[in-house]
Simulated scan of single mutants.
Amino acid sequence: MRTPHVVVVMGVAGTGKTTIGPLLAARLGVPYAEGDDFHPRANIAKMTAGVPLDDEDRWPWLDAIGAWAHERAGLGGVVSCSALKRSYRDRLRAAAPGVVFVHLIGDRALIEDRMSHRRGHFMPTALLDSQFATLQPLGADEAGVGVDVAGGPEEIAERAVAALDRLPDPAP
């Protein structure tokens, strides 16, 4: 990418945001921030108990990620964040107008299989349906790209870099 962007790696749980985000950041030569680290403890407890978050739960989390993205404006960075709804992405863009999104997209069966094999993560597979129900894919007017999650992490990260390279530079 020619201009340092702040990239939000988005998608439903289990698409590989935490795996692809650091790989993408390394390829772009910018820092990575794990979106789950911005969640208040109450959010983690709720999800661990199998209860989906509602918008009121998400606003402080999105604001914290938006503040990080704002601080990285012009410097670049990569952060993972599900950003499932347009309103969530709008909130991130309000905080950091130049942010771009990499939407990790995959078949539900593949994602569920990957989730069932991961250990030590608070998000149970039981919440996957609520994630897909909430998901609003990127609109044509949103700065970002969709990247298929089939294949290995290195391959996915390379596809993300190639897709980002095709985006136009943001206005100054």
Rank of each mutant, 00 (worst) to 15 (best):
G35E: 07
G35P: 13
D36S: 11
F38A: 07
H39M: 08
P40T: 09
R41G: 13
A42W: 05
N43L: 06
I44A: 03
M47A: 12
T48N: 11
V51A: 09
V51E: 14
V51T: 14
D54H: 03
D55E: 13
D55R: 02
D55M: 09
D57A: 08
R58Q: 01
W61F: 12
L62H: 10
D63C: 02
D63T: 02
A67F: 11
A69G: 11
A69Q: 09
E71A: 15
E71R: 15
E71T: 14
G74A: 11
G76I: 03
G77K: 00
V79Q: 03
V79L: 06
V79F: 04
C81Y: 08
S82Q: 08
A83S: 12
L84P: 00
L84Q: 08
R86F: 06
S87K: 12
S87L: 12
R89F: 10
L92F: 02
R93E: 02
G98E: 09
L104H: 00
I105G: 04
I105L: 12
L110V: 13
D113G: 05
D113T: 04
R114K: 03
H117T: 08
G120R: 14
M123W: 01
P124I: 02
L128M: 05
D129W: 09
Q131H: 15
T134W: 06
L135R: 14
L138T: 01
L138R: 07
G139M: 10
G144Y: 03
G144V: 03
V145P: 05
V145D: 06
G146Y: 14
V149N: 02
A150R: 15
G151P: 06
G152N: 10
P153Y: 06
P153A: 14
P153Q: 04
P153N: 05
E154N: 14
E155W: 10
E155H: 15
A157K: 01
